[in-house]
């Protein structure tokens, strides 16, 4: 085999290339089904994004429709609902960074301090389970729990209070997003911090203990600094999805009563595409805008995470 390689080096490149390709033909047949899938169902739609610069006519199809340049964007950028949805998305997801992001860190710190290994195992099971439920299920559970007739309001009423419609109130909607999101995902996200904690050198704790450090001091001065690189990387990666996070959740938790405060960019795209007379050119213009912004944010986040010494986006 090495002889083949050596001889191929002496010939000019194309022939060597052909030989190398032929030699690896089994590898290409392994890759082929996946490649076809990627081309049709991932790159195909990207081609469809060209509609952003076209006037889509159903009878002419994606490729036959006439080009109209930036015309769609003229309409998009003049739509007040579009800009509102952009700012709302940023606002909601900024809140996620402030309120949701620290929760898994806190959870992992508490779990780590827990001294009962059996109980800890049970707790971890409870905390990670909701991650595997869809937002359709979680929303259904929450609607049952928080609606006017739900358990929370029943308790409030039996204590003499008046019922509060948690999911149908415009002021409460955003906090409810954070609470339900923490409910569903904090336990799962904590895993990565628990893994980081388990990598901390035990000697540090013993030395601190000999020096008389209290438990809180040990958390603050050993555990936290040790997992800080992981926390920073996760934070930067999270900022990369500031324009995209949470469609599944908002779509299933929202209802007509909170329509005005729940229309994020993705919700806006959904509405103009599927709940209004569709203008695919217009919809695609918004979608392309969204995809490009998200890509830029993700690439920046990836760079940032790598600068911080993390592994970046790609595992």
């Amino acid at each position: 085999m090495s002889q083949v390689l050596q001889t191929s080096k002496h010939f000019q490149r194309p022939r060597g290339l052909a030989a190398a390709i032929y030699k690896n033909r089994a590898v290409y047949t392994l890759l082929l089904p996946g490649l076809i899938w990627y081309l049709v169902f991932a790159y195909g739609p990207m081609g469809g994004l060209s509609l952003a610069f076209k006037d889509y006519r159903a009878n002419l199809g994606i490729w036959g429709s006439p080009w109209v340049g930036m015309q769609n964007y003229h309409y998009v950028f003049r739509d007040a609902a579009f800009w509102r949805s952009v700012w709302r998305t940023l606002f909601i997801n900024l809140g996620r960074l402030i309120f949701e992001f620290p929760m898994p860190v806190i959870l992992s710190l508490i779990l780590n301090e827990l001294r009962m290994p059996r109980y800890k195992k049970v707790l971890q099971t409870i905390f990670t389970f909701p991650h595997f439920l869809s937002w359709v299920i979680v929303s259904s559970v929450m609607i049952n729990f928080l609606s006017v007739e739900g358990l929370v309001n029943s308790i409030v009423k039996s204590l003499g209070g008046s019922a509060f419609n948690f999911l149908g109130n415009t002021t409460a909607f955003q906090p409810m997003l954070y609470i339900t999101s923490i409910w569903k995902s904090a336990g799962w996200s904590a895993i990565i911090y628990l893994a980081a904690i388990s990598g901390i050198d035990m000697d540090q704790y013993e030395a601190a203990q000999i020096d008389g450090a209290s438990r809180l001091q040990r958390i603050a001065h050993i555990t936290l600094p040790n997992i800080m690189p992981t926390v920073t990387v996760m934070f930067i990666l999270q900022t990369g999805s500031i324009m995209s996070a949470g469609f599944d959740q908002i779509f299933n938790l929202s209802n007509v009563a909170v329509r005005d405060v729940s229309e994020t960019l993705d919700m806006y795209i959904y509405r103009i595409t599927f709940q209004a007379p569709p203008d695919f050119g217009f919809s695609m213009a918004v979608s392309l805008f969204r995809s490009v912004i998200n890509m830029v944010l993700l690439v920046l986040a990836d760079r940032g995470a790598k600068l911080m010494g993390g592994s970046g986006l790609f595992a």
Partner: peptide, 11 residues
């Protein structure tokens, strides 16, 4: 494909 996608409409 992890950082850029066409979205649901072209699909």
């Amino acid at each position: 494909t992890m950082i850029f996608n066409g979205g649901i409409i072209p699909l």
